[in-house]
């Protein structure tokens, strides 16, 4: 029984922790791309990377205040969306898929290379405080909770984690609200029509390219915000955290919760990290495999989950079966 509680506690802790916030944001961004507009962005991790580095370089290396860093992160993801969208948004969907995943890898290679080291710290990345006030330090200085532990029973938080959790989920709620407002409007209707058939939208006088670009930027900026949350919650970033599989985690999160639904990415992220953390804890406790293989097992598990979800429940937890059977 104690074992079960330990496993569940790990799951719950992870489900409401900062990582779940990061992936909820990244998946909401993908929801705007893939769920509502039908854009196949397989390089969401690239947006996370430029967001995180935009923040870290501005605050830690150029010693600017946190809010300037946040703006830099948003601008960096907007720029990436423009660079990617201009050439590929006129092409078939798979071209965007391939060039986004390629661009994300290009960025990771370039950011970890020695020529870029003065700006990016090379393979070792940028810790929160190199010079200046430090992004995580500034963030923590805003924390109104006095030092200590908060919570009940087995569910307790340090004051920093509580602060990160509250602000993180508040941002997620705000973003959900904005996406909800957008998607119920005529603007959202145009996006959905592009997802269904962009030629039909074009024939009705909609500037499909402009809408796709707006959607790519919006979702990309949400990816950038996810990257910034990641940087702040870890107090350091390194290029090899931004491996292509992060994008696919975000896809799994989105599809698990239900693409093209408002709450899908949020519910998906909670559930996904609950599952990942409990499975991992259960594997460690049961001692069925050497500890070195737990990492890859977890990743293989995500892969199988994605296959099964897509094959058997593509509408996810919250999706509408009636809509899914129509998917051509």
């Amino acid at each position: 029984m104690d074992v079960l509680i330990t496993i569940l506690a790990d799951g719950v802790n992870s489900a409401i922790g900062p990582t779940a916030v990061v992936f909820a944001l990244a998946a909401i961004g993908l929801n705007v791309h893939y769920g509502y507009t039908g854009l196949l962005n397989f390089g969401q991790v690239g947006f996370m990377l430029v967001g995180a580095y935009g923040l870290a370089i501005t605050v830690s290396i150029w010693e600017q205040p946190l809010w300037v860093g946040v703006i830099a992160g948003i601008l960096a993801s907007t720029l990436l969306a423009l660079l990617l969208g201009l050439p590929t948004l006129r092409l078939r969907a798979d071209y965007l898929a391939i060039s986004t995943i390629a661009a994300a890898e290009i960025l990771r290679f370039v950011f970890r290379s020695s020529p870029a080291t003065p700006f990016t710290g090379g393979p070792f990345g940028i810790p929160s405080q190199v010079g200046g006030s430090g992004y995580t330090q500034t963030w923590n200085a805003l924390n109104p909770f006095p030092q200590g532990r908060y919570g009940i029973g087995w569910l307790t938080f340090s004051h920093t984690r509580l602060w990160a959790t509250i602000v993180g989920w508040s941002i997620v709620l705000l973003v959900v609200l904005v996406v909800w407002l957008l998607m119920r409007s005529p603007w959202g209707r145009v996006l959905k029509s592009i997802r269904e058939d962009e030629d039909a939208a074009r024939a009705l006088g909609k500037n499909v390219f402009a809408y796709k670009m707006q959607a790519l930027i919006l979702g990309g900026v949400l990816g950038g915000m996810a990257g910034m949350m990641l940087a702040i919650s870890q107090a350091a970033i390194a290029p090899d955290q931004f491996l292509p599989q992060l994008t696919f985690f975000a896809y799994t999160v989105l599809i698990m919760g239900g693409a093209a639904t408002i709450w899908g990415p949020v519910v998906g992220s909670l559930l996904f990290w609950f599952l990942i953390a409990s499975v991992e804890r259960a594997l460690i406790i049961s001692d069925v495999m050497p500890s070195g293989t737990i990492g890859p097992t977890r990743l293989a598990f995500v892969g199988i989950l994605l296959v099964l979800l897509m094959a058997f429940r593509p509408q996810g937890l919250l999706g509408n079966k009636r809509e899914m059977v129509l998917d051509g």
Partner: peptide, 22 residues
């Protein structure tokens, strides 16, 4: 749908890749 199958290839790739790492 093709897009759905494309996402399945990604799941398959994760499962195979890390299965082989194990």
């Amino acid at each position: 749908g093709l897009i759905q199958m494309l996402v399945i290839t990604i799941g398959l790739s994760l499962a195979l890749r890390f299965g082989m790492q194990i």
